[in-house]
Amino acid sequence: MGNASSNAVRAYPQRTFHHGADLEALNQQFQGAKPSEIMRFTIEHAENPVVFTNFRPLAVAFLHLVTQAKPDIPVIWVDHGYNTPETYRHIDRLVKEFNLNLFTYTPKVSAAHYKAVYGEIPPLDTPAHDFFSRTVKLEPFNRAMEELKPDVWMNGIRHDQNAHRKSLNIFTTGSHGTIRVAPMFHLKEIDVEEYVYQHDLPDNDVYFDPTKGEEHRECGLLLEK
């Protein structure tokens, strides 16, 4: 009887990444680890990991890091329609150079449609801007998560980007039952710049996110429950 129980446990091992996981222990374990070590551990233990990126400046470092570990990982990008021409060209280049497995999600209302019906991008911190953010970014992102059903959502956030992100960690609970993993969380901006330089990676210097408006603000994805 005891042997049967033991065999059953071995046959059906507990998942590493779920909302009941001991994330505090994981964060302590990997506090001083290299991003590549965190990435390898995550890839080895995740059942259906995905990446989210907006192709902002220095995001290429995170994309390079993750595709070295898992070249075919699904990469989610929400094209809200307000990107700069430089950003679109940058994305096309990275898709070709990194052979990205890109999943592009767009709002149900195009940028031209939104402008015609509701006008220009609304002022920050207003109900109109909240509606704008939900329409052009949060809804497509939530749709991506519902369709792809990942257990792990990896991203390139760092502790030095704003106050909210400083309160997070490498492993945190995310929306849609996911665990968010930020392998570069403990790095500083200069560290990422050096990574881009050392690997001679193409970067995107002309970037605009209409849902943030200001660099220190959150667009809402990390605030989703």
Rank of each mutant, 00 (worst) to 15 (best):
M1Y: 03
M1I: 13
S6H: 08
S6R: 12
A8T: 12
A8Q: 10
R10A: 14
R15C: 04
R15W: 00
F17N: 05
H18P: 04
H18E: 03
H19V: 14
L23C: 08
L23V: 11
L26R: 08
Q28S: 07
Q28F: 03
Q31V: 15
A33T: 12
E37M: 08
E37V: 15
M39V: 14
I43G: 06
I43E: 06
E47F: 09
N48Q: 13
N48K: 14
P49L: 05
F52L: 13
T53G: 01
N54L: 14
N54Q: 09
F55V: 04
R56M: 12
R56S: 15
L58R: 11
F62G: 03
L63W: 05
H64I: 10
T67L: 07
Q68D: 10
A69S: 05
K70S: 10
P71E: 07
P71S: 13
D72E: 14
P74N: 05
I76Y: 01
W77F: 15
V78E: 05
D79F: 02
H80N: 15
G81T: 09
G81F: 05
N83D: 06
D92C: 09
L94Q: 08
V95C: 11
V95N: 05
K96T: 15
F103G: 02
T104Q: 08
V109K: 09
V109T: 15
S110F: 04
A112I: 13
A112D: 12
Y114A: 06
Y118F: 14
G119K: 07
E120V: 14
I121M: 00
P122G: 06
D125V: 08
T126H: 01
P127D: 00
A128T: 03
H129I: 11
R134C: 08
V136P: 06
L138F: 04
L138K: 06
E139R: 07
F141A: 09
F141N: 04
M145A: 02
M145K: 01
E147L: 12
L148M: 06
K149D: 12
K149L: 11
P150L: 04
P150C: 02
D151Q: 02
V152F: 03
W153F: 09
M154F: 05
M154H: 01
G156K: 00
G156P: 05
I157K: 03
R158L: 12
K166S: 11
S167Y: 00
N169G: 10
T173G: 03
G174V: 08
S175H: 06
H176K: 12
T178L: 11
A182K: 04
P183G: 06
K188R: 14
E189S: 10
E189F: 05
D191C: 10
E194Y: 02
E194S: 13
Q198C: 04
H199Y: 10
H199W: 06
P210E: 04
T211A: 10
E214D: 10
C219A: 15
G220S: 07
L221K: 02
L221R: 01
L221I: 15
E224S: 10
